[in-house]
Amino acid sequence: MSTPSQTVGPYLGLGLPWDDGPSVVDEGTPGAVWIRGVVYDGAGKLVPDALIETWQADADGRFDHPDDPRGATSGFRGFGRCPTNDEGEYGIRTVVPGALPGEAPHINVSVFARGLLHRVVTRIYFPGNAEANAADPVLAAVPEDRRGTLIATESGDGYTFDVRLQGEGETVFFDV
């Protein structure tokens, strides 16, 4: 039996943030973009004590991981981590991942916060990939009127992806 999940509580900012957490790729990396967003609660108030974690393939759609059966890759960290600030904002600097076999380009996201006894998981898809998104099996399993919550919007230096934990426009969350 697995160890149960518990909340990160209000003081996650002590233990979880890293100086280089938001940098999946270094500044100046070709194709680098910022993915920024705000986390909101069910009353539409911003959440200043949340943590966003991202996990993704590299620009060629590969993972540096022994269970990726396509073979070893580059040393791409693939992981980003950023606490929300007093305005509920986070930001991750990364590259847009490549497509995966049978899946549109996407980034897996875990959201931790006070008041979340278990992380919630969502996915970021990208707006430029209408055809691939339309064929994506995970997006297809999401009710059509809610799919938009999973698609980032373009912004000045990359993309915007807000997270609404509850209520109007609630983000689609997955059972992993």
């Binding site: 899946e103 919630v120 099996p137 399993a141 609630e170 689609v172 969350f173 059972d175």
Partner: peptide, 15 residues
Amino acid sequence: LRHPKQPLVLLPHKL
């Protein structure tokens, strides 16, 4: 005010 009210969507285990 922080728990999702919509049902979670099953995520298959892919790469």
